[in-house]
């Protein structure tokens, strides 16, 4: 059975503790780490790949880029924002899901289960890449940057990155060098087309 790890980053000791104690009872997680600040979390960022990150979005204000970089790198990381009140969509968009603290806590467990199921289906079932993903993989293997691919396909870098993340989730391969071997193995590109 896959063991998942949970990380809670929330400045309120009370809320942090309450979430931890509630989720401990569910036995869903092999480990639960808690942090009160973003910096402490980044310094001790977990090495487990299958994880859920529950975080207060106020902690990443002015650090959105850093947050995006961190979450995009970890393919099997799902993020849930803890909200005290409504926040602008620009911030909400950065998270996989949101949980308002006035909602019943069972809803949080439900959202976590949803995230874990998505992760499982990404890992366990051999998923076929969509045509768009294959196209992007082909360019990645040829050595094009995310920005260059975006320009070629008229997509924003954010969209290209999101496809790249899906490709990694479906194949289980995270690095460009690894994806290149994969692209050759499924005949998307020939060896002569790639820069080794």
């Amino acid at each position: 059975m896959t063991k998942y790890s949970l990380v809670i980053v929330e400045p309120s000791e009370l809320i942090n503790f309450a979430i931890k104690e509630h989720l401990k009872k569910t036995s869903l997680f092999a480990s639960i780490s808690t942090f009160f600040e973003w910096e402490a979390f980044v310094q001790n960022t977990t090495r487990h790949s299958n994880s859920i990150l529950i975080i207060n979005p106020l902690l990443i204000v002015n650090k959105e880029k850093e947050f995006e970089k961190l979450t995009q790198k970890q393919v099997y990381l799902s993020t849930i924002a803890i909200l005290y009140h409504h926040l602008p969509d620009a911030i909400i968009r950065l998270f996989g899901d949101v949980f308002y603290i006035h909602e019943p806590i069972s809803k949080l467990t439900q959202k976590i289960n949803q995230c874990l199921n998505e992760q499982k289906s990404n890992v366990n079932t051999k998923q076929i890449l969509s045509e768009r993903e294959k196209e992007i993989l082909k360019y990645l293997a040829k050595g094009l940057s995310v920005k260059e691919i975006g320009e070629k396909l008229f997509l924003s870098p954010h969209t290209v990155l999101s496809h790249r993340k899906n490709i990694s989730a479906k194949t289980g391969i995270k690095t460009i060098a690894g994806l290149t071997v994969y692209a050759v193995s499924i005949n998307l590109v020939s060896i002569d087309e790639i820069d080794t």
Binding site: T175, V181, Y182
Partner: peptide, 14 residues
């Protein structure tokens, strides 16, 4: 990450 990719490629794709 690279080591994990090597393992994945050997286990699933080659």
């Amino acid at each position: 990450e690279k080591l994990s990719d090597l393992k994945t490629l050997l286990l699933h794709h080659v």
